[in-house]
Design a protein around this nucleic acid. Sequence first.
DNA 1: GTGTTTGTTAGTCATATGGCTAACTAAATA
DNA 2: TATTTAGTTAGCCATATGACTAACAAACAC
Lengths: 122, 122
Amino acid sequence: MTNKHQALDLAFGALSDPTRRAIVMRLTSGSASVGELSEPFAMAMPTLLQHVRVLEKSGLIETEKIGRVRKCSLRAEVLAGTEQWLARQRAVWEQRLDRMESYVLELHATEIKNAKRKRKRK
Amino acid sequence: MTNKHQALDLAFGALSDPTRRAIVMRLTSGSASVGELSEPFAMAMPTLLQHVRVLEKSGLIETEKIGRVRKCSLRAEVLAGTEQWLARQRAVWEQRLDRMESYVLELHATEIKNAKRKRKRK
DNA sequence: GTGTTTGTTAGTCATATGGCTAACTAAATA
DNA sequence: TATTTAGTTAGCCATATGACTAACAAACAC
């Protein structure tokens, strides 16, 4: 039983579904009702509502009930949070590649020196 | 298109688990065997191997069997791919916020003008 | 006030996920 | 050759996920 209540768990989990990613994409161009969100999908409303709930729990979106309509809108902070995690991993990785590259370059330099010395010794 | 979507499904899905994120983090500082990866976790090896398989299917890591040891290493391209998706969403969102802001600023400007005109008319 | 729209809850179902143990294979070592 | 090591497969189990239908409720429109 893994603890699925950490922020990144919820955010990445929410984004692992194509329907929910499509919802996020839609909301980047402005808030929408549940009905509006459901239009592009061949999916019963309760199912779509469930997706909205998942996105809400993950913090990726927030919703507000106005009359009988529920207005959904994006919360970009959490989006940025998951992006940052990825960026950090990539940064460490690339730093390491850089170190490796300079190490390899040094090796090459040493090899060349040794080769020259060898030739001199001959 | 469906392929792209599937790739993101797998990548985000893989990253939605804390154990798998920890594995990715570990691999940013160099490749490791399954045994080495399992050390920090109170988890049976078959369970950890399953996580490794999930990461492998998502394309986030690749593995190679050398003798009786399986060497796991990071593939940063897929990491970058998911990061790019997030960055793109955030970009659209921020562009929209900018447009809104300039609209609001224009509104303000108009209000001020009107206020001035009102005062003049008085 | 009756009917329509917009969501919502409840209950069901199939499959996926994440964990375990036990038994097995293959490589390295004594 | 016998033993240890590193990984693997198979099978089991509990819970989570994503879909559906069938009511139900509240706001709006007439």
